[in-house]
């Protein structure tokens, strides 16, 4: 084989192989579940303020993972795993909690940590913590993005004791939500991760961090500061 034919072989190998890999990568990336970004809507009256609403559901029937709950209709889930907020902004967050609850693994997560004022409003009532055993889920956000500003926010989302199920979302029925409101302030551009610290995932050995807790897009997500 002469030099030019060899070069041809080299080129064909790299192009074919690289092309196949690139194609595979493209298919993989487009099939990796990413939910539609939920934008924090900037206030028209106050500068550097925005509002965003999330929910936590006892199952996936509400439809975020597809009609009839997707592959795991019985898994607990946040309503969105991809929140986008502006930099250096006060984020007013509302979380509608539709699920029941119990004891967290670590009582630390019964407390409100890292919000503006160190408090949250539960159905309009200002609290700093939830009674032991009354936590349903938590919204726990953290990360060291390397841009100097760290963020740690953890808010318990209380047990929803509702026994009537008047709310219909997707194919699911839910009690009236417990509405939790709090705010925190972002720094510069970064990606933070939030997840639930209540052992709500079910798992083989019973510590509650399997299944929905180990699957991207159910009980965790990212907050991208742009």
């Amino acid at each position: 084989m002469d030099r030019s034919k060899s070069l041809g072989v080299a080129l064909v190998s790299v192009l074919l192989g690289g092309g196949a890999l690139a194609l595979g990568g493209f298919v993989l990336a487009s099939n990796t579940p990413h939910q539609k970004a939920l934008q924090c809507i900037e206030s028209s009256t106050h500068s550097h303020t925005c509002s965003v609403t999330l929910s936590t559901f006892p199952d996936s029937l509400e439809g975020v993972h597809g009609a009839n709950g997707g592959p795991h209709p019985d898994w607990v889930t946040y309503s969105n795993d991809n929140v986008v907020v502006p930099a250096n902004t006060t984020v007013n967050m509302t979380i509608d909690q539709y699920d029941t609850g119990g004891n967290v693994n670590n009582p630390f997560f019964d407390s409100v940590v890292g919000t503006n004022g160190g408090t949250a409003a539960v159905n309009g009532k200002v609290v700093t913590h939830v009674a032991l055993g009354d936590t349903g889920h938590t919204f726990t956000l953290r990360g060291i993005p390397g841009n100097g500003k760290t963020l740690f926010v953890s808010v318990p989302l209380p047990y929803n004791f509702g026994t009537k199920f008047p709310v219909r979302l997707g194919t699911g029925t839910y009690p009236k939500p417990v509405v939790v409101k709090f705010s925190f302030t972002t720094g510069g551009p970064a990606v933070y991760e939030f997840n639930c610290e209540f052992p709500c995932g079910g798992s083989r050995e019973g510590n509650g961090f399997g299944e929905a807790m180990q699957a991207f897009g159910y009980m965790s997500g990212t907050i991208t500061v742009k």
């Binding site: 990568g25 993989l28 990336a29 990796t32 579940p33 990413h34 993005p145 390397g146 990606v191 180990q214 699957a215 991207f216 897009g217 990212t222 991208t224």
Partner: peptide, 11 residues
């Protein structure tokens, strides 16, 4: 790059 852009952390 930092962040999870190509695949997510589960994948």
């Amino acid at each position: 790059t930092p962040g999870t852009h190509f695949v997510n952390q589960q994948v």
